[in-house]
């Protein structure tokens, strides 16, 4: 199982509207990795995920996912986009949201099969939300909504799960529950988690990637202040490396 490359980026450059977003990124993620991607706002974290998904074509370099192009491997990638994208008032039920994840398998013009519906229910029960299947999405709490979006990503039975700032609108109790869920999921798939929350990430992930347009660091999660300073361009301290203190936010400046 291990040492099999799930993601490989070779000298990847991404430019959007003339601005360089990612600069010469080389990266491999192996099967079973739980990788946390941290970095300041505008560091290119979301673009990195989108390049892995094949939504953004790199201007230079190559992205391979499971040995193929991202487009070919899309079926095996689960994606939880940034939260701000959706309208809380949208008339849609939890079950319909999760079924949306099956679109790639079901194909255009086709109706969801009984199999699709069964898989949607299984994904919902995996995240403990099956009983809310018929409720309107907007009526759920932020934590419950995030679980629904995870279920939507899981319904394709992915080998790789990409999450973009999944805890940004969760309070610390919800965050703890959320990371516990990821802990169980990492037995079955590789996970790449983008977050600005250094402390929480460093508790749960196995490896860390520091990104600020260039790749500043990739490796063991126990990183020192020097690497963080390099990433954030100013001194940063990790508040807690202890499981009991998850959910505190990092990124504070020293005042000494």
């Amino acid at each position: 199982m291990s040492n099999w490359e799930i993601i490989r980026l070779e000298d990847v450059w991404v430019r959007i509207d003339g601005a360089t977003i990612l600069e010469g990124i080389n990266l491999t993620v192996e099967d079973g990795d739980f990788l946390g991607v941290i970095g300041p706002n505008g560091a290119g974290k979301t673009s990195l995920l989108k390049a892995i998904l094949g939504i953004i074509e790199p201007d230079n370099g190559r992205v391979t996912v499971m040995g193929k192009s991202p487009r070919e491997s899309r079926k095996y990638i689960g994606y939880v986009p940034q939260h701000n994208a959706f309208d809380r008032e949208f008339p849609i039920s939890v079950g319909e949201v999760v079924l949306m994840g099956r679109n790639i398998h079901t194909g255009l013009f086709r109706r969801y099969s009984r199999e699709d519906r069964k898989m949607a229910e299984e994904a919902l029960s995996k995240v403990g939300m099956l009983e809310h299947k018929d409720r309107q999405l907007g009526k759920l709490s932020g934590g419950e909504q995030q679980r629904v979006f995870i279920a939507r990503a899981l319904v394709t039975e992915p080998k790789l799960l990409l999450l973009d700032e999944p805890t940004s609108n969760l309070d610390s109790t919800m965050q703890a529950g959320f990371y516990e869920l990821l802990k169980t999921l990492k037995q079955q798939m590789s996970i790449v988690l983008v977050s600005h929350d250094i402390s929480a990430v460093s508790v749960y992930v196995d490896k860390i990637l520091c990104l600020n347009r260039v790749l500043c660091y990739h490796g063991d999660k126990n990183i020192g202040p020097d690497i963080l300073q390099l990433t954030y361009q100013h001194p940063v301290k990790i508040i807690a490396h202890d499981e009991n203190f998850h959910g505190l936010s990092g990124g504070h400046e020293h005042h000494d």
Partner: peptide
């Protein structure tokens, strides 16, 4: 509902 996700799902 969600263009970002749909793009990734090949829609």
């Amino acid at each position: 509902f969600d263009e970002e996700f749909s793009k990734a799902a090949g829609v």
